[in-house]
Design a protein around this nucleic acid. Structure first.
Lengths: 334, 334
DNA sequence: CCCCCGGAAGTAAACGATTTCTCCCACCAG
DNA sequence: CTGGTGGGAGAAATCGTTTACTTCCGGGGG
């Protein structure tokens, strides 16, 4: 029923050559007779030979897989990054192992062990927080790492991210230009550099250009905390515009003002599909997610080729997309 | 600088035992002296030994990875399936390789080669259409496959999917019970079993219970074609309710009626975030996506353990979630 | 004419973990 | 006292590929 898979020796025998020659043909080595090469290729076809990746990887002491470590595959930001990394990696001859840590340390540890055990060619990681300890085992095993989106203190490693400070600045400029005067910011925990940088950029730009500081509401990045924060803002009164620094809290915040007659202006983060469908449509800071994924893969591939060069950081800029939720200016003069 | 990784022999030497014993300890084999086992474990810690997956996989003639083949990681349906498969697989000791075919045959072929080359333990596949040829190389290599969501003709293989005919029937019942009388259906190409089954269930239930056939509009599953179809429906007039059979066309269809005073009722597919945020909120057929992913993984793991049993098909039922877009009944009698 | 060089192909030794086979020993029953 | 039994551990073969080393050519220069 199930014969065992053909090996390089079976092919060699059928082509009347040695296994070394077969290997040379498979790897396009120079100095192989055209005639023989053709015979080998025919034998490969005839036997249906597919090189065993384990054997190859054992001999080569590395594999042609890269790992992508993400906290949560459901979040469209992460899944878009993944779907851009994948084709870029494949066209360079790598395949992608998806590691979905769910923000849980033991799950992450399992994957880190796997990555080392498989001698993966490299890792693209979105760490869960700034105390991320996963980097050490990887660097010790000489596995190149590219960080996406989040910054770690005291480490020298390749990184690609949105210029979050600048994104916050753009948000402030947009809201001020539209005539709003009493801003609030719904943001994440202080330990998360992504949202914290956006807050810092926003606050700094606001205080230097308009004066004063935005009211501050912190959530846990999820939908519900965005809803709760916006509800508090409505209760507190006196706020005429709200900047939300991540995608899910943006949706939650919108839910809280849905259908209200005179809601505060809303500037959300990430251009998800819902922002165009709701009424009023929602202005957003659009991050260059697709570029991020593509360039992360490129960066990793470059790093694998040149392990000893200096680490780089690439920052990509975002832009404001204006829609109805900030178009109107403040509701009234008072 | 970079010493080479410790091997089983290094550990053996340090613990004063043979490599065989180390292997036995690592794999929890019975009949190992407690004392020795402890010494081995200490040596493992001290050396930082991590078993080389390639060596193990070569000897075992199989790997502990499963592959998930999806057409498009961006689609929330697929990414949710993946994010459920992953933890279920991991807790059974498998890791997940993500294969993102982008509906392109050559990309898919690359991955199929990889899957065979790596002797993967199994594959969860969402084929792009009913002429999917990827199954053959896998079954020839004795790699178990579980199909998700889509049906293939003439193959006997494990499958898990939503009961799409029943979903269509539920849609018809809901719209008829709400008092609508002139339905349209926006659906996908005839070759896609998923959307076709929903259409069939819808049409059949409608004709037997209310009489007549729904007006038919076909799209290519993407946002724009949903928008176009709904625009045509509005032009054609005479339609009082619309059932859309996939998630992205649902969003496009909503876009076309956004803000209109008396739009036809809309019943969408998949409970995406936007359906609750828009005005009017949108009634949906909710598929059990999370169960689908979890059970697909379970099914594959069972199959790996028992390769020779008969293939099974599991159908999961969906349910209608009623919101504002179908709540009102038909706009007027005249 | 001889030597050396270089291209082409084969031989065999790695890579690292597992596992069969074998050996040793202690213990127990006859 | 002896033969059998079974647990515990080591030696060595094995998985399939790649590659350093060898071998065998033929040809060109001294």
């Amino acid at each position: 029923m199930s014969r065992s898979e053909p090996t390089v020796r079976d092919v060699a025998e059928r082509a009347g050559v040695s296994s070394a020659t077969v290997s040379r043909v498979m790897n396009d080595a120079p100095n192989v007779d055209k005639q023989l090469a053709r015979r080998v290729r025919e034998a490969v076809k005839a036997t249906g030979y597919v090189p065993n990746a384990a054997g190859r990887s054992l001999r080569a002491r590395s594999s042609s897989q890269i790992a992508v470590l993400i906290p949560d595959a459901d979040n469209p930001y992460f899944s878009q990054v993944v779907s851009e990394v994948e084709p870029a990696a494949r066209s360079a001859g790598y395949s992608v192992m998806l590691c979905h840590t769910g923000n849980e340390p033991d799950q992450e540890q399992t994957y880190l062990d796997q990555i080392v055990a498989r001698r993966m060619a490299g890792v693209i990681a979105i760490p869960s927080d700034e105390s991320w300890s996963g980097l050490t085992p990887l660097t010790e095993a000489n596995i190149p790492v590219v960080l996406v989106d989040r910054r770690l203190p005291d480490v020298e490693v390749d990184r690609i991210a949105t210029d979050n400070m600048d994104a916050g600045r753009q948000a402030a400029v947009h809201l001020r230009d539209k005539g709003f005067r009493r801003p609030a910011c719904i943001t994440g925990p202080e330990t998360l550099t992504t949202t914290e940088d956006r807050l810092l950029g926003f606050s700094h730009a606001w205080s230097t250009s308009a004066g004063g500081a935005p009211a501050l509401y912190r959530g846990d990045l999820h939908f519900d905390s965005g809803f709760t924060a916006m509800t508090e803002i409505l209760d507190d009164g006196d706020i005429d515009c709200v900047f939300v620094t991540n995608n899910r809290m943006s949706a939650g915040a919108f839910q809280a003002i849905r259908g209200l007659p005179n809601p505060p202006a809303l500037l959300a983060t990430d251009d998800d599909i819902w922002t165009r469908l709701v009424t009023p449509s929602v202005s957003v800071i659009q991050q260059p997610i697709r570029d991020t994924g593509r360039l992360a893969a490129q960066m990793l591939i470059d790093r694998i080729a040149a392990p000893n060069e200096m680490p780089r950081t690439t920052l990509l800029s975002s832009k404001v997309i204006e829609r109805e939720s900030t178009a109107g200016g403040p509701p009234s003069r008072g």
